[in-house]
């Protein structure tokens, strides 16, 4: 695992129960801020269809894909509603100096 923390965005730039897109190098990521303020960075593309989770719907600890309504657990990346069947990657995330940062697995 890389020790490098990547700054995705200001914490204040994402409302609670919302998600924003962050592109870095060749990757695209979904930066989720849950209702309790916990922030999580996960892979940005749904594992089922070609859709950006950043356009999806956050409700509690789940995020729903905007294209087929498949759902992931935000904390674990596990699928919780079909048609999603493959888990997505959730990255180690922290809020540091009001920035949401995450570490990429390499």
């Amino acid at each position: 695992m890389s020790t490098e923390w990547i700054s995705a965005c200001d914490e204040s730039s994402i409302a609670k129960n919302d998600v924003a897109r962050f592109d870095h190098l060749d990757g695209t990521y979904a930066v989720v801020r849950m209702s309790d303020g916990i922030c999580v960075v996960m892979d940005g593309l749904c594992t089922h269809g070609k859709a950006h989770l950043a356009e999806g719907f956050v409700d509690g600890t789940t995020i729903e894909c905007p294209k087929h309504n498949g759902r992931f657990n935000v904390l674990t990346g596990e699928p919780v509603a079909s048609p999603v069947r493959v888990a997505t990657t959730v990255y180690e995330t922290r809020v540091h100096n009001s920035k949401i940062e995450f570490r990429l697995i390499k």
Binding site: D18, G49, K50, F57
Partner: peptide, 21 residues
Amino acid sequence: VDADCYKPKIDRELIKQLMMR
């Protein structure tokens, strides 16, 4: 196949509200 489709412009706050169950 599984192509990117047209999306209109809409305020994120509004579409969030509209997606509420």
